[in-house]
Amino acid sequence: MIKTENLKVNLPGFDLHNINLSIEEGEFFVLMGPTGAGKTVLLEAMAGLIPVESGRIIIEGKDVTKLPPEKRGISIVYQDHALFPHLTVMENIRYGLHFHRIDEKEADKRLNRLLHELDLAHLEKRLPENLSGGELQRVALARALMVNPSVLLLDEPFSALDARFREGIRSGLKKLHQSSGVTFLMVTHDFADALSLAGRAAVMNDGMIEQTSSMDDIFQRPDSKFVADFVGMKNLFSVKFDGTRAAIDDLKIELGRTPVNSHGYIAIRPEDIVLSKEAFSSSMRNSFRGTVSGVFDRGFYYEIQVRVGETIFKSLITKRSLFELGIQEGIDAFISFKSTAIHNF
């Protein structure tokens, strides 16, 4: 369990203020927010790597605000993995054991479990420079969990990895969380990561927490305009899957494939949604009639919101198409998208 009370951090040119978070024992909690919101700073403050101006940090009921990082029992995994380049994989993983009094048998048991779960046994003697991105990541995780921390902080662990491997690593991390029983706090800006891993999340902006609640609430019932904007740029819907179709309330969307889960989410990038005034005859499997409910200038593009039934879809079009199509609020329009443009999870 980790809790912060009115945490305040002053760095040159950057502040965190009034950070109140409470993360339960064994929870998987996600911290989201745009670049520069202060997510990494908050993690480092919790770990004692950045001095705190005022407020308290409480881990398992103990006030650790004044403790140095080595006494807090918080492990951290960075985006760039930060493996010790002069130590082998095994030496990296066992590094923390030098400073903890852990029963040798228990340490060996944990080591073997981690080596097995993270599939690292064959890499033992390698140096970090000879590992792939995914392997580096797994070593960093093993190293962090080897000391059996109260809390594991993950700073955008997936962003340095190839998108193709994300799915696999995501499910690996989920398993690891369950088998270790450690409280996980992960920073990410990827909604798919957040939704598939975490139960609760907080959204940060400009050094403050905007909203802390369940994943669903953040996406369905954002507390502030900022959170709405932050999560709303994407077409993300909670759906029921039925065969190859996904249902948003009454709206049936063709996926062209059968998902394994019965409930889940679908996401469509706004630029993948084609806007037209007349019904669109093409190979696109999904086409709906709706009403333009909003037109927003986004610099190079215009964001057009189209309401279909109770659901709002967002599409991006260029200024030129805006004039050519004669789009304005209140008119009827068609939206179309390919089933391959839909991401489900």
Binding site: E70, F99, V147
Partner: peptide
């Protein structure tokens, strides 16, 4: 970050 990770793993400065 290498030093930060080391600290978080229990090593003194």
């Amino acid at each position: 970050r290498l030093e930060k990770v080391s600290r978080s793993l229990g090593a003194s400065m």
